[in-house]
Structure formats: structure tokens, C-alpha cells
């Protein structure tokens, strides 16, 4: 099934651009393909992959951003995951945190479960939702020139970006999924582990 307004960006190429030379960027990924995409760019301790907790990715990013005000948090998730956590767009904007960005890989589909149309595939516009929730910088990228231009801004500004990817399915790349391991190594890499 294709629709006239389907995106054309290659999700793996997009995420490779977002994750180029990440330095100490703190990255939280939404369950499903966003986790696979980020894992495919190379595993690192400051990547926190979700394999569940659908709808919670942005809020994990907020708690992390508030705790680490001198670092920048990049949340990379899909349209379905963000739709489940839509209230968090209002919560994050209202918090006033400036060191968090969200990049939504939007294919208008629930890719993990059979590619059913999501609400963004049926007309909802998450960028408009974010703007209405109070995000000051909101953008939608449809080609790689736009992605390359916004990638550095996602690490410096508080930005909500929709990236219009194609619905093409990619081979699964499975990063670690033991939550206790992911948590412990993240905290050690940040130097905040208590033991």
C-alpha cells in the first residue's frame, strides 16, 4: 500500500546522519525499528534502547535532560510510539528544558505489526501537534539535504523534527535488550553509578 503523501527518505541513511560522530550525545530510542536503526549505526553505552514501555521514550529523555543539563539528549522514535506519548509533547514543552530534541521517524505505519496505517498515515501531523504544545522549533524533513541541515541543530537546540521516511522495511538489527545492563552501562559511562 502506498499513498500520495508517503515519505521517501531511507530510514537507515537518515539515522546514520543523526548519529554521525555522536560524542557524548545522550540518545534514547523508541521501541521497534527506531531501536534497530540506532543500533545499526554502532552500539555505544550512551544509547538507551527501549524494547517496550511504548509511549515513554520522550519522557525518559526529559528526566535525563533535567538530570544532565550540560549535555544534550536526542530522542529518536517512530510515529506510532510518539502517538502513544502525545501528551509528553506538552509536558516536555511546559518543562522548559532546552537540552532535549525529538526526531520522529515517520512512515505513517505501525511497521512492527504488519504495516497498518498509523494516525500520521491517516492525516495527523505530529509537527503541528508539537508546535501547538509549545515547542518553539519544529520542522519536517523530506529529503536528505534537509536532514543534513537539521542534524547538527538537533544536538544544540530544543527541536522537534519529523523525518518523512519511506515505509520500506529493513533487516532487523538487534542491539542489547537487557534493561539492567543498558541502565548500568549508561550510568557508568556518565559517571553517575553509585556502586
Amino acid at each position: 500500500m502506498t499513498r500520495q503523501n508517503d515519505g521517501t527518505l531511507d530510514r537507515r541513511v537518515v539515522v546514520a546522519e543523526l548519529m554521525r560522530d555522536p560524542g557524548d550525545l545522550l540518545v534514547v530510542t523508541g521501541l521497534g525499528a527506531a531501536t534497530y536503526d540506532v543500533g545499526a549505526t554502532g552500539d555505544r553505552p550512551l544509547n538507551f534502547y527501549l524494547w517496550g514501555a511504548m509511549g515513554g521514550t520522550g519522557m525518559i529523555g526529559l528526566g535525563l535532560a533535567l538530570a544532565q543539563p550540560d549535555k544534550h539528549v536526542l530522542v529518536i522514535t517512530g510515529d506510532g510510539e510518539q502517538l502513544m506519548g502525545m501528551g509528553a509533547l506538552a509536558t516536555i514543552a511546559a518543562s522548559g528544558a532546552k537540552n532535549i530534541s525529538i526526531a520522529v521517524l515517520d512512515n505513517g505505519r505501525f511497521g512492527e505489526t504488519g504495516s497498518q496505517f498509523s494516525h500520521t498515515g491517516l492525516g495527523a501531523d505530529l509537527a503541528a501537534v508539537a508546535a501547538a504544545c509549545g515547542w518553539q522549533t519544529v520542522t519536517t524533513a523530506r529529503d536528505m539535504d534537509e536532514v543534513k541541515a537539521l542534524a547538527p541543530r538537533l544536538r544544540q537546540e530544543s527541536m522537534f523534527a519529523v523525518l518523512r521516511i519511506s515505509a520500506e522495511e529493513k533487516p532487523r538489527h538487534l542491539p542489547p535488550r537487557d534493561g539492567a545492563y543498558l541502565t548500568d552501562r549508561f550510568r557508568r559511562a556518565l559517571g553517575v553509578a553509585e556502586v
Binding site: 538507551f48 515513554g56 528526566g63 535525563l64 533535567l66 538530570a67
Partner: peptide
């Protein structure tokens, strides 16, 4: 719950 998880990841 997600906020709490993020805080813990960041040492708070």
C-alpha cells in the same frame, strides 16, 4: 514512570 527512569539514567 518514564520521567523517573530518565532521571535515574542521568544520576538523579
Amino acid at each position: 514512570i518514564a520521567l523517573s527512569a530518565g532521571a535515574w539514567l542521568g544520576g538523579e
